[in-house]
């Protein structure tokens, strides 16, 4: 086991599995939504990880092949409890859609045309929106609290380019990484 990952007890694995399973089961929306909810659970509620690590691993998950939510659960699980943690988080992330879609595949028409299902999913979408906003506000406020610096500029520029100008995510990630790297070089050279 890596020295960076800690030994955990059965209670931890149960909590990790259950919370990840439920988040995966009830979160409508893509990778960054899941990341926000996992952060709310792992960091804010259980204190298993820090903000910074979560953001680092989210960036890593985004840059790897495959589905971001799956990558994120593997990376965060590994960080918290090694390979067993990664396996636990991965299983908990994959099982809910596997079960849901297997069931829906049997009765797609009934599912898609049910007004109750549609209303419940719409409601959960609003809930997920509130949760991601909450995480976003917390993170921006923390960054803001450090005054005007390079990270704040990167944050604003990336947001504007992505949200208003639809600039491709991969390009933004590469450029931001490069800017961070060059800035550190420049600061060290001074």
């Amino acid at each position: 086991m890596d020295e960076n990952t800690k030994k955990r007890d059965g209670h931890f694995y149960r909590a990790l599995f259950c919370s990840t399973f439920l988040i995966s089961a009830f979160t409508v929306g893509g990778g960054f939504v899941i990341i926000s909810l996992l952060k709310a659970k792992y960091v804010d509620e259980f204190g298993w990880l820090e903000d910074k690590e979560t953001l680092d691993l989210a960036a890593l998950a985004q840059s790897m092949p495959g589905v971001m939510a799956v990558n994120a659960s593997i990376l965060l699980g590994y960080r918290m409890a090694g390979i067993l943690g990664a396996l636990t988080a991965l299983t908990a992330t994959v099982l809910p859609p596997l079960i849901t879609i297997s069931l829906i595949a049997q009765a797609y028409e009934a599912f898609a045309s049910s007004p109750i299902v549609r209303l419940a999913l719409k409601g959960m979408q609003c809930g997920a929106t509130a949760l991601i906003l909450n995480v976003a506000v917390d993170l921006v406020r923390k960054q803001w609290g450090q005054g005007v610096n390079l990270p704040l500029l990167i944050l604003v520029a990336t947001f504007v380019l992505n949200f208003f100008f639809d600039v491709n995510l991969m390009i933004l990630v590469v450029v931001d990484g490069l800017v961070g790297f060059l800035f550190l070089r420049w600061a060290e050279a001074k």
Binding site: F32, I35, S36, K52, L55, D56, A58, A59, Q62, I132, V135, A136, L139, V140, Q143, P151, L152, I154, L155, V156, A157, T158, F159, N162, L169, L172, V173, D176, G177, L178, V179, G180, F181, F183
Partner: peptide, 10 residues
């Protein structure tokens, strides 16, 4: 560079 980018994307 990437940390604030993730916040922006969230």
């Amino acid at each position: 560079g990437l940390r604030p980018a993730v916040v922006a994307l969230i």
